[in-house]
Structures are given as structure tokens and as C-alpha cells.
Amino acid sequence: MSATPRVQAASGGHGDPVRDSALGLVPDILDQYIPLSRKVWQEGPLNPAQLEMVRLRNARKVNCVFCRNARYDIAKEAGLSEAMIQQIDDNYQHSDLSRREKLLLAFTDQYLDAPTAMSESLKAELVAEFSTEELVHLSLALLLFNTFSRCAVALGGMPDELPLMEVSLPK
């Protein structure tokens, strides 16, 4: 992974870490992405704590250090604790997480690892536990999380480690 950023940040002045980053070089995309992202986080049907678990599972598997160490304030407000986050590792199936939370992570892993190979039993469990609207919400959220974590990796300049950072939704 390149330790040097491949693109300079945008000129800044927006007071928003996303718009002032390299992503700000293509404002037309951000103008559509940011309101969609806010809607995905804020307008259910899955709550921000559930979405944050999916985002962090994706971040760990993509190895995006920025994403891995960010913590959305709205997820914390929705009840997600650091103790729960620590359980989103490769042994999550044996953790204290709920059945519903484990299924969210299983769906995430399937998207990341083998999207054509979802077992009939996992499909049945997902359909039994979640509404169609929840599964589509989960899919769209994961698509956005994965897109922007891979984006951060591809742009280079990723440090090996970062402290935990509480972040808010971009504006």
C-alpha cells in the first residue's frame, strides 16, 4: 500500500473533512453522495448502531485504517459500545452479539468474500429475520461503505495506525 497520498486534498474552506479531502476534487459526485449517505444513516429502517457494525466489519476486511478507526457519533448515541465493536472480529459468530447482529455481519462477509455463494440456509435466515426493506437498506449502506473504504485505500497515504476518532455525518 502506498504510504504517500496520490492526490492532493481539495483547496478546502468548507469546514467539512470529506469536502476538504481529495474527494472534494470531484464535487459533482459529493453533491449526490453526501445527501444520500445522510439519508441512509438517518432514515432507517436499520438503525445507526446496526449500520456502524456493518461499516466497521467492512473497514476491517478492506483494511482501511481511516474507516476502521472512525466512530460515528450517531451510532454511539444509538447504543453501540466499544465492547460490542471489539466483537466484530473473525470470531463474531461465537461472540455475545445478537443473532440479528451476527446476520448483518454474515451478509457483509458474503458480499465481500463470495457474493455468488450465499447458502440457502443463510438466505432463509436473513429473510426470516429482516424485512425486504431492511435487506435493501443493508445492501445500499454496504455498497456505500465499501465504495468509500476502497476509495480511501486506492488514494494512498494510509497510515499504519491511527487513534480512534469520533466523526459526524458529512454535510
Partner: peptide, 22 residues
């Protein structure tokens, strides 16, 4: 800016392809 645009677009193409499969 072209590199950033390409990377963002690839993310959506990659994700949509995987959702089609999933």
C-alpha cells in the same frame, strides 16, 4: 481529479456488480 473520479466510479461499479450477484 480524473483519478479520484475513476476510483469513486470503480467503487460503485464493483459494488453494484457484487450486489447483482448477491
Amino acid at each position: 481529479a480524473g483519478l479520484v473520479a475513476l476510483i469513486e466510479a470503480l467503487g460503485l461499479f464493483y459494488g453494484l456488480t457484487r450486489l447483482t450477484q448477491l
